[in-house]
Design a protein around this nucleic acid. Sequence first.
DNA 1: TATAATATACCCACTACTACGGATTTTCTC
DNA 2: GAGAAAATCCGTAGTAGTGGGTATATTATA
Lengths: 205, 205
Amino acid sequence: MKIFLVDDHAILLDGIKSILEKEPTLKVIGEANTAEVALEFIKQHEVDLLITDFNLPEMDGLALVRLVKKISPITKIIMLSMHDEVHLVKEILKEGINGYILKNDSHKELLSAIAAVDAGKIYLSNDINKIIINSLQFPDEERMLTDREREILKLIAKEFSNRDIADQLFISERTVETHRKNIFRKTKTNSLVGLIKFAYANNLI
Amino acid sequence: MKIFLVDDHAILLDGIKSILEKEPTLKVIGEANTAEVALEFIKQHEVDLLITDFNLPEMDGLALVRLVKKISPITKIIMLSMHDEVHLVKEILKEGINGYILKNDSHKELLSAIAAVDAGKIYLSNDINKIIINSLQFPDEERMLTDREREILKLIAKEFSNRDIADQLFISERTVETHRKNIFRKTKTNSLVGLIKFAYANNLI
DNA sequence: TATAATATACCCACTACTACGGATTTTCTC
DNA sequence: GAGAAAATCCGTAGTAGTGGGTATATTATA
């Protein structure tokens, strides 16, 4: 199995490689610190399995997954992320990846995931399964933001005032206030601090 | 050399262990996901070298370093962190640790650090050296916060209002406002959002 | 085409925080 | 014990944002 690794932390990359090298059936044929470099490689070589982090500089793991699906549909993908935030997880799973494990899972979980994916199965780590099931049991009434709301949230996070945002988007300050209100309601936060934390947790900023 | 590893991400722990096992002179005698478990071990066993992450649940790496220095002064310490924020780095180096490397350094850097520390030297990764030198060249006029200011910043980040904070610390709301003013001045931020970002970057929350 | 979702806009009362200013007490350090 | 740093406290005016509404145009979608 030809494996390609992507993570912005070299030491983790080295560590995983060291773990995988012990398995005779697996072969790490390349690695990259950025999505861009990974894409370049995948365009030119056949890769059976891509194991990628979500947090990457510039292009993130989600964007990478989407592009890899296009340029190399046969390549299977395992997301190896530290994020266990339900919306982000859902967003990533929607793309139809083959496995999702967390960085606080052990290497055994990684090896199990690789074996499962190799056998054509989908592998989710225990914690991820819990998150999914939990979110089914307690659907949190559409916390998802609309595009416009997300856009405005990003501007809020960039330290613009309502006035600034209104000017920038050529809309009334009132409108911004309304969006802001809706964002607060949907994210179930009521302070700016909580909102920024939400944005961080959901990787919106 | 008897080494103990601390990191909240099991997969990284596994990876590093796998790398270190290749070196015949090194022996990983234990590992932990939390500072608390690590301390318990160090109290009962002799550890030559502690390699720890900064980001840990509950007690952070800095607190761990301080305690280890007390209960086992012979134990050398290498910080393995993803943080390259100048103030945090300085704060940690002040404790007199033996090495500081970043997670985006390669495993070679880690091995070099271990060798250097074993030889009684202090090892800082290239990026850390750059940061230190840069901060000497451009000293940013005491962005450091006092204990009280840090305490208040944390409460702000916990979504408490000035009124709440005043009540909690048994001080006047005016005092909180003054601290807040000073915090904004020192951190060179002028919006709550910027402040929260600062707090995140400096791992205060 | 009907319906829902989204984006737009407004009002009013209220609260929290900001931006100036200045001042005193406590604690640490030489 | 002098001096610096930190922590405490206050006033007043102004601004930005909150929370409660309501309402209409536009765009998807079934």
